[in-house]
């Protein structure tokens, strides 16, 4: 438990502004992740950045960055939906790449399929142009404290 993080999660929940929370996560800052709050829904946003490119020919977003963005999205989604004061710990992560993730803005939404006492299961969908044409889908298990 960390009182500062706990307060940030509570503030983010109330105000819908996740920037102060994301500012505390260096990896999220490095890839440039943002969060949009639409009503009660959260949409995660990864703006285009040349530092996130993998394959230079397409050019394409690095598959690892896309996966990292989706894992972060799942972690934050779970934290906020549980109002958790601590960071859930990743147990496993599985991603299917469906289309080339081009060098474009990328979005992700999450669905918690199961939240037990000790483990949470989250599905993540990432898209670029249309939400019904995902570039990747993933699912993750997290250990909850």
């Amino acid at each position: 438990m960390n009182p500062q993080i706990e307060q940030l999660v509570r503030d983010a929940h109330q105000t819908g502004d996740y920037r102060p929370l994301i500012e505390q996560i260096p990896y999220a800052r490095m890839i440039g992740m943002r969060v949009l709050r639409l009503g009660e829904e959260m949409v995660f946003h990864l703006p285009i950045s040349k530092d996130n490119i993998g394959n230079p020919v397409l050019p394409a977003l690095h598959g690892g960055v896309l996966a990292g963005f989706m894992e972060l999205a799942a972690m934050l989604h779970l934290m906020v939906s549980m109002n958790s004061p601590s960071f859930p710990k990743i147990i496993d992560f599985s991603v299917d790449y469906l289309r080339a993730g081009l060098s474009r803005d990328t979005y992700a939404t999450c669905q918690v399929w199961r939240q037990g006492r000790r483990v949470g299961n989250v599905a993540i969908t990432a898209w670029q142009t249309r939400s019904d044409e995902p570039v990747a889908t993933a699912r993750a298990h997290f250990k909850l404290d």
């Binding site: 990896y27 690892g64 990292g68």
Partner: peptide, 19 residues
């Protein structure tokens, strides 16, 4: 420090390991 996912523990984020 740029790839840390948990600022409380300093543990690297899974995304960097996935990359």
């Amino acid at each position: 420090e740029f790839i840390v996912g948990n600022p409380v523990t300093g543990v690297v984020h899974g995304g960097a390991i996935t990359t």
